[in-house]
Design a protein around this nucleic acid. Structure first.
Lengths: 216, 216
DNA sequence: ATAATTTTTTAGACATGGCTAAATTAATAA
DNA sequence: TTATTAATTTAGCCATGTCTAAAAAATTAT
């Protein structure tokens, strides 16, 4: 597959996952910042290659082959994101564009070795699951920190807001990927929280808590 | 620059370094496994972009701009090779093709962070120097193990033969990148050597010694 | 149910990077 | 020095992936 074909497959994958079971020509065009006519052309080609089901005027769905291919691209993207944040100290909001390029590198061996090197992470820095070699998505239930109860423990697996402002704030709080957190008390008045990080108690606002993903 | 343009720039860089000061159309074609006519077309374009000096029928030379660009590609290629071998446990003969793809990833930040992560290596796994950010090539004098004198010490920085057969043999001898070696004695009869690796003495043939690069 | 609007597809064009075959220039041999 | 051979360039074609403009189909609004 060419880089371009891979971009289309990934876009269709995300659109059909997030919205409904099929993706419309114009949704794909919007997603990829291209024109509907270009999308129609490409869809034709992908249909010939049996990675999408396509009937004129009715949008597209990935075939099983397409699903597996898409999952492998997402896998690469998320493993690279994890690498960039964990090993190269990129911040969580800087990784996307670079991962967008790296995800197209064609080497099965490279990605499996990277997986080993990283210790088989299950989530990327945004808290999204990393599909395995077979395209299976681990169903780890992530919840927002704001949804946790008093005395509950969990591990930070991602963020919802990945603006550098927020990330710098998290740095100050000593919150990073993998940080263990225990909720001490949730204040009913404003939903702010007292939590324990590294044996120290800190207070965070409801807004902050609603932007941190936790694995319990 | 496109991937293709970068491939041409790198090819011209290597040809003019290794052979003479200019690269001929047919040499470039051979290097890139393409046709002379395609090379002529691309050379025209690179000339328009001021990365090569070109006069019809007289081959090409990189401009200063071209040299700098080429060095940055070589830098990326060699840093990635180092990463693959040191971090992902690729063997020295497996890295080239993957590095060939990775070298095109466009992110200044990525490559500088990678350099930091790897500890600013000066040589890739084949013993070739890694240019710095400014395209400067460190002039570390590498010699062949076979050229070392009795009692001399050095560090393994690369191999000449990177067949998997040879690499597996080196593994058996516990010789890797960075391994410190001391020559005990060179046998005048067949040029075989007794060397010390990790406090243990091993005997290697002249052929083996002539395929290992050492930094003294 | 038909008209108006939106979405999608088709048709035709363009840029990139490759090819073959023919023409041109340079290099080598007689 | 001319003829032959080799290298290089030109001309014309093709595939990929994009675009605009026009046509066709589907959706919605009256």
């Amino acid at each position: 597959m060419t880089y371009s074909e891979e971009d289309y497959i990934k876009a269709i994958y995300h659109l059909s996952k997030d919205l409904k079971s099929f993706a419309s020509t114009s949704d794909i065009a919007a997603q990829l910042d291209t024109k509907a006519s270009s999308v129609t052309d490409m869809i034709q080609k992908l249909s010939d290659k049996k990675v999408v089901h396509y009937k004129k005027y009715q949008g597209v769905r990935l075939t099983e082959k397409g699903e597996i291919y898409a999952a492998s691209i997402v896998r690469k993207h998320r493993l690279w994101e994890y690498f960039l944040v964990e090993k190269l100290n990129f911040s969580w909001d800087e990784v996307h564009d670079v991962a967008e390029e790296l995800e197209h590198i064609k080497s099965e061996k490279l990605i499996e070795r990277l997986d080993v090197f990283l210790g088989f992470p299950k989530m990327d820095p945004h808290g999204d699951p990393i599909p395995d070699q077979h395209g299976q998505i681990p169903d780890i239930k992530k919840i927002l920190l704001s949804a946790m109860k008093d005395e509950q423990r969990g591990i930070v697996i991602g963020v919802k807001d990945s603006s550098s402002k927020f990330l710098r704030y998290l740095d100050k709080l000593n919150i990073a990927l993998g940080t263990e957190i225990k909720v001490l008390e949730k204040e009913a008045f404003d939903n702010s929280m007292a939590i324990v990080i590294d044996h120290k108690t800190v207070h965070i606002s409801a807004i902050t808590a609603a932007n941190i993903y936790i694995k319990t």
